[in-house]
Amino acid sequence: MIKVVDLYKSFGSLEVLRGINNEIHKGEVVCIIGPSGSGKSTFLRCLNLLEEPTRGEVFIDGVSLTEHRDNINKLRQKTGMVFQQFNLFPHMTVMENITLAPIKLKGMKKEEAREKAVSLLRKVGLYDKDNEYPNKLSGGQKQRVAIARALAMDPEIMLFDEPTSALDPEMVGEVLSAMKQLALEGITMVVVTHEMGFAREVGDRILFMDEGMIVEENTPEELFGNPKNERTQSFLSKVL
């Protein structure tokens, strides 16, 4: 579903990604862990070209993103993204946040889009918040609205960029359980996270990144239980 070939990314003289190769399959939940500055978020952002790779290619369903830049808006509809800082549109209600893209991009009827939004909000456990503005919501609620907003475009892949890192501890659970629900439904997910518990429980595969490379990848049982690389061992010993 996603194929990444020899991906490099530099910001000026700073090399952030140094040759990433990987393949993410349909229905798979891949969690990316690693120390800060290891390039996890940059890697994720390359998957929908929010970050332009310096070299290498990203294929989604066999279509190269970098070769179809002119068609990027269409290709981006295949991936939904959830950000660390939520990035809800503050001048719009929850309902408008969710229905904007389906109405403008898919030509969905307003009523249809609203119905869909309500059912997505239910799915992430939000009721009666349709007409609130984002600033009336708690962090956990905001992030769940952001998930619903991304889902409204029926993406084939969901990208999560540290979705719980900006949350107060007591709100982490509600967001993670919404994500768990999605994973159970079989949505393909790529999750950059510091929540090792979540990665271990929900992930089908864990990628450990350090210094712009995937140092080790394995099933959660193996990677957490029996890390082979020295850097993975040292990282896990600090965070677990």
């Binding site: 929908n48 929010l50 808006n73 269409k74 981006r76 509809q77 991936t79 939904g80 993204m81 950000f83 800082q85 990035n87 809800l88 549109f89 904007l100 893209a101 403008k104 991009l105 952001a146 907003r149 991304a150 475009m153």
Partner: peptide, 13 residues
Amino acid sequence: DKGQMEAARSLGL
């Protein structure tokens, strides 16, 4: 905030 543009673009706008 830059994130606003990014969120909008990530939806396909």
